[in-house]
Design a protein around this nucleic acid. Sequence first.
DNA 1: TTGCCAAACGGAACAGCGCTCCATATGGTC
DNA 2: GACCATATGGAGCGCTGTTCCGTTTGGCAA
Lengths: 196, 196
Amino acid sequence: MAGGPAAQGAPRKRADARRNEEALVAAAATVFVRSGVEAPVRDIAAEAGVGMGTIYRHFPTRAELIVAVYRHQVEACAEAGPALLRDSGTPAVALERWIELFVDFLVTKRGLADVLRSDDDAFGALHTYFVERLVPVCAQLLEAAAAAGQVRSDVGAYALMRGVGNLCIGSDGDDRYDARAMVGVLVRGLRRSEGA
Amino acid sequence: MAGGPAAQGAPRKRADARRNEEALVAAAATVFVRSGVEAPVRDIAAEAGVGMGTIYRHFPTRAELIVAVYRHQVEACAEAGPALLRDSGTPAVALERWIELFVDFLVTKRGLADVLRSDDDAFGALHTYFVERLVPVCAQLLEAAAAAGQVRSDVGAYALMRGVGNLCIGSDGDDRYDARAMVGVLVRGLRRSEGA
DNA sequence: TTGCCAAACGGAACAGCGCTCCATATGGTC
DNA sequence: GACCATATGGAGCGCTGTTCCGTTTGGCAA
């Protein structure tokens, strides 16, 4: 959990190992854009110019590789929560803006929402990471808005995030479906009383 | 499209073929309950006591087998639309009840919602069947409710059904997420003005 | 500089999947 | 009872993810 540079226990990696790890994250990012998050592992290894063994040595599960690729953006999203709560006019507005941020993130990552909801255990860690990092943030915003009487209080943060994530599934390649719009409808259903 | 019994062109199947087809649908239904809709084809063949070739002879794509298993229930759902519109107090209530029907259907079929949204082409026909059969029904209800000024009119029937379907994905095995409740929130967001 | 070895690597090999293909078996008909 | 189109079964192919182990190499110590 201590993310700092070279904590005590860390035996310091070899130079080539570090190089390959970075190359893999970069390659994965490239391939994810080209073929989606569910791209074959071999493709990623080929793109990085390494063997199969190397990929599994650095990222024992697919989820860890995906997390490594998107960690920065997830962190940014998580950190935006308190800031929005501070800067926005009302908690409800902060919540809505934060959800927009989250949706923008998901929608622009081909297949990420799909895989986030996969029942495959290989992605379980991915789901866990997202939940642990983002649900508390969402909960803070949601509870503030509920306390202010602006949204109903019978929907939990986890359920809300799952709902939003689900609505983002398959959001590309079908112009009859606009994930952002549907999330908007969902969020609207969250509001308490006064219309518009 | 003419579903009637033995239309002209149909060359009449052999008795064993018909028996196997029925056995396959029954076996598939059993396996779907046990292992979900994405169960291995081999499992279904084994359950039915037939070979791989037989399954593909009768159902060239997975989607057709799934459709065969659930056709009755999908038809019932489709036919319930006009009836609800006739019998319910208002179009909005009819729409809400119909969506509840649809959600109940999806939620009780393990993995069906997931596969309905799969980007795998093998399931494309399944998606198409659901869309062709149910979207028009939904459109009728939705337009009636919109015409009555009870729901907003900027959400299409297709988008609504996709949204509802998406919310049902992964609806089992996670007691923190209640698909029915989230669909309720979505539908609430559809309403126009007056709360409660 | 050189020698050493743990660390790291590469890719062959294995298992599980969907789907195809064709030699074989069988039901219905003459 | 014989014939053959229809139907069957399962081996086989291609594509996945994942493991395993012989080979290579970076970094350190002599």
